[in-house]
């Protein structure tokens, strides 16, 4: 009986395989971007799409479905056909944190990453002429004046906010989170001296005016290639690890071989010197991971985020 089942399963697999034989050339592959046009994820994928198109030999139109930090795009992906013709951007921590304490309109387990493309650690930024030129100095001041250090974030549960909560916990200090509608608004408030510090990704920092802004620590395990001279928080004695990852995903029930082909195509595109040059100009901290490797890391990160979120719940 077991054998029959196995055989029929194999036959089914073969049948699906042959039905998909034409993939990906018989129609366009839709690439859903979970953010508005012009954001970091959008620009990254619009830059990548022509290379994927060449490698796969299929048209890859980019479609923006912004909203609810990605939930709208992931829901659309979860409702698409599992035929490999619908891809979506995938961003952490958003993809992981949105399920904490909230019912989602889709099942996160049904969405499988194809590849991670970028990993961009967060960094702590102050004004260039700030009295606090190291994390230690900032922490020392915050210890004496609880709540007086204000830190611009881009909202609850965002990268910067999660990093801030970790720093509070690790250093035993009390900071005041000031939410802004985006990194640029936060940057403006910092330049005007309205907040003490802000969080930015290292990629964003490396393209900003470094005579006006100064990074005093990055939240990575190891120093990012974009900021080799910037000490990590860990080196300065604070346990803060926070990075944004951006990649591609599709439904988990898309045939394994199609997902493998997609992952290979991304890997190949990322090795293309022409793409590398463009990525370099945009300061994209490229960091390829296959879907399988990426998915392996996720439970650990989710656990960490859940812990941090419980700090928010605890009334911080």
């Amino acid at each position: 009986m077991k054998k029959i089942l196995a055989t029929s399963a194999l036959a089914l697999l073969a049948a699906t395989g042959s039905a998909q034989a034409e993939w990906p050339t018989d129609r366009p592959i839709e690439l859903i971007v979970a953010f508005a046009p012009g954001g970091g994820t959008d620009i990254m994928l619009r830059t990548l799409a022509p290379y994927l198109k060449e490698i796969l030999g299929a048209e890859i139109p980019v479609l923006n479905r912004p909203g609810a930090s990605g939930e709208i795009a992931y829901t659309a992906l979860a409702q698409s056909n599992p035929d490999g013709y619908t891809l979506s951007s995938l961003n952490t921590p958003g993809f992981l944190t949105m399920r904490i304490g909230r019912e989602l309109g889709f099942d996160p387990a049904a969405i499988c990453p194809i590849a991670r493309i970028v990993e961009d650690p967060g960094a702590l930024i102050v004004q260039a002429n700030s009295p606090y030129q190291t994390m230690e100095e900032l922490v020392a001041y915050a210890k004496e004046n609880p709540g007086a250090v204000s830190m611009g974030t881009t909202g609850v549960g965002t990268d910067e906010h999660l990093a801030m909560l970790q720093l509070e916990e690790s250093a035993g200090i009390d900071l005041t989170a000031i939410p802004f509608a985006g990194a640029n608004e936060a940057k403006t408030a910092l330049l005007g001296g309205h907040v003490t510090a802000i969080g930015l990704n290292v990629g964003e920092y490396s393209t900003a005016d470094q005579n006006a802004l100064k990074a005093i620590g990055q939240f990575a395990e190891e120093r990012s290639v974009l900021a080799p001279d910037l000490p990590t928080a860990k080196e300065q004695g604070f346990d803060v690890i926070q990075s944004s990852e951006r990649g591609l995903a599709t439904r988990c029930d898309v045939p394994e071989e199609i997902r493998a082909k997609l992952s290979d195509a991304v890997d190949q595109a990322l090795a293309d010197p022409a793409f590398l040059e463009q990525a370099g100009q945009m300061a994209l901290p490229l960091s390829y991971l296959s879907g399988a490797e990426w998915v392996e890391q996720m439970p650990g990160r989710l656990e960490r985020y859940t812990e941090i979120f419980s700090l928010i719940e605890a009334g911080r």
Partner: peptide, 9 residues
Amino acid sequence: TTTIAVLLP
């Protein structure tokens, strides 16, 4: 905004 995003690349 949309137009420029599309033309950016």
